[in-house]
């Protein structure tokens, strides 16, 4: 018998520190498989965020840098501009990318920086104990929206993929989900496309990944995947919002 599925080389042997059932681990594996398939492991530099995935530098078997909260796209810009032949990616949560780091992501996309952004939207601040994120759904109860998110005072959840797709220099923007095998397969294809765009030097690429945070949602991992399907996907539609053909 031949091994048809195993640990990708672009992951270290270090066990993930994520909670049981947390989708961060699936996202890591998909990115690592894509780096393996493109054979770019030794030429890749990743930038970790602040959030539960702050330890991603222990898990990805590539050169990694930790950026200050939300600043990963700016750090990645600098790296890519001095090392244009390296593959550079950021890995960011929704608190990191859509809240404290909104300015950095908008301007990196607007400049069309040739980097790939892996954006984990789990509708919450995971690491700090479950505060409301800009992506928290209307009515969703969190530590800082104990009566549910009320758009009258808290605004509506921000659709980052759609918002960044209005920028003419963004080359590839998609949204995928990790709640079931069919969606995981599609997510991998999309991550592969995003890195292909970077390899082809076509500019900025981002994959928004709808993910669970069972711990702070107060659900079992199976219930959390169901909650994602029933609540997040209807509001955050899956698909491609921008492809390189549209780049000005």
């Amino acid at each position: 018998m031949k091994k048809v599925f195993g640990r990708p080389e672009s992951l270290t042997e270090v066990p993930f520190t994520y909670c049981p059932g947390c989708h961060h681990g699936i996202a890591h594996r998909l990115v690592a498989e894509v780096l393996d398939e493109f054979k770019v492991r030794e030429n890749t530099i990743g930038v970790c965020p602040v959030g539960c995935s702050v330890f991603a530098y222990l898990f990805f078997n590539v050169d990694m840098i930790c950026a200050a909260h939300g600043r990963a796209p700016a750090t990645a810009t600098g790296i890519k501009r001095v090392k244009p032949d390296s593959i550079v990616f950021t890995y960011q949560g929704d608190g990191d990318l859509a809240s404290i780091g909104t300015a950095e992501i908008v301007h990196a996309a607007n400049r069309g920086e040739n980097i790939t952004v892996i954006f984990i939207n789990n509708a919450i601040y995971g690491m700090t104990g479950g505060q409301m994120a800009p992506t928290t759904l209307v009515g969703q109860v969190t530590q800082t929206s104990p009566y549910g998110r009320d758009p009258k005072t808290m605004g509506y959840p921000i659709k980052m993929a759609e918002m960044l797709s209005t920028l003419k220099r963004a080359a590839y923007i998609s949204r995928v989900a990790l709640n079931k095998p069919a969606n995981i397969i599609k997510a991998k294809k999309s991550i592969k496309k995003a890195f292909q765009v970077q390899l082809d030097k076509k500019g900025f690429s981002m994959v928004e990944i709808l993910s669970t945070c069972p711990t702070n949602w107060g659900l079992s991992p199976i219930e959390a995947s169901k909650w994602l399907e029933e609540n997040m996907i209807p509001y955050f539609p899956l698909g491609e919002f921008r492809t390189p053909e549209e780049v000005a």
Binding site: M1, K3, V4, F5, R7, F16, I26, R29, I184
Partner: peptide, 19 residues
């Protein structure tokens, strides 16, 4: 069947599949 759906879904990459 070796479909690997279990391995693909495992967040901790704890499953290997042989065929």
């Amino acid at each position: 069947t070796g479909c690997a759906f279990c391995a693909m879904t495992c967040p901790d990459v704890a499953i290997e599949v042989f065929k």
